[in-house]
Computed example of a mutant assay.
Amino acid sequence: MRRLNSLLWAAALGLTMTSVGAQTSAASAPAAKPARIVDIDDADPLMKQAFIRARASLNGFLKTAESGNPAITNAALRVVIREGDVQEYLWILPFKRTGNNFSGTVNAVPRFLKKVTVAQTVTFTRADIADWMYVDTSKKVMYGNFTTCAMALKESPGDIPELKKRFGLDCRR
């Protein structure tokens, strides 16, 4: 259950269902409190599948995130950030797109990176994006977050319903 709490934290980016109900747009949503770091093993077959799912649906996510729909909140991108041989996957919230480039605010306290800090603005490309997520407050469902869904598959099957119940995470999409 301890690992599940870590997953819940990662899934929610520090959100609660109370903040899920907030009516702010993705563009104007205040950044959630910094997420706890969850290690991502990019050699793990489940994680590779999560990256593929996220990247394959990225265009649809960007269209949704940029739609201006007030029910769409906490739109975030999980991005790989590198310093030499060290890399870490961090949630970026909020973010903006300029052509093929992106910039946004680091929403996690880096554990391994030394030159990146929480709340720092970073720039990145589409190739750096590993995952995405947003909350639809009208349905109280969190979409995307494929990396957390992959991690949840390694948990006790009895713990996964709590993850879904607490944050509305829908791992089928």
Rank of each mutant, 00 (worst) to 15 (best):
A26P: 08
A26Q: 02
A26V: 01
A27P: 01
A27R: 13
S28Y: 09
S28D: 14
A29I: 08
A31E: 07
A32R: 03
P34M: 03
P34T: 11
A35S: 06
A35F: 02
R36G: 08
R36A: 10
R36Y: 13
R36I: 09
I37T: 11
I37D: 14
I37M: 13
I37L: 14
V38P: 00
V38Q: 10
V38W: 03
D39Q: 06
D39K: 12
D39H: 08
I40L: 11
I40P: 06
D41R: 05
D41A: 05
D41K: 07
A43K: 13
A43E: 12
A43Y: 02
A43V: 04
D44Y: 00
P45W: 02
P45V: 06
L46S: 14
L46R: 15
L46F: 13
L46A: 15
M47T: 15
K48Q: 14
Q49C: 01
Q49W: 00
Q49K: 14
Q49E: 15
Q49F: 03
F51H: 09
F51Q: 06
I52Q: 15
I52A: 13
I52M: 12
I52R: 12
I52E: 13
R53M: 12
R55F: 04
R55I: 10
A56L: 05
A56M: 02
S57W: 00
S57V: 01
S57P: 05
N59Y: 11
N59T: 15
L62R: 01
L62V: 05
T64W: 01
T64A: 14
A65S: 09
E66C: 02
S67L: 05
G68V: 10
N69T: 08
N69G: 05
P70F: 07
A71T: 07
I72R: 01
I72V: 15
N74R: 11
N74Y: 14
N74F: 14
N74D: 15
N74T: 11
A75H: 01
A75K: 04
A76D: 00
A76G: 05
L77M: 10
L77Q: 08
R78A: 14
R78S: 12
R78K: 12
R78Y: 11
R78T: 15
V79E: 14
V79H: 09
V80K: 06
V80P: 00
I81W: 01
I81C: 06
R82H: 05
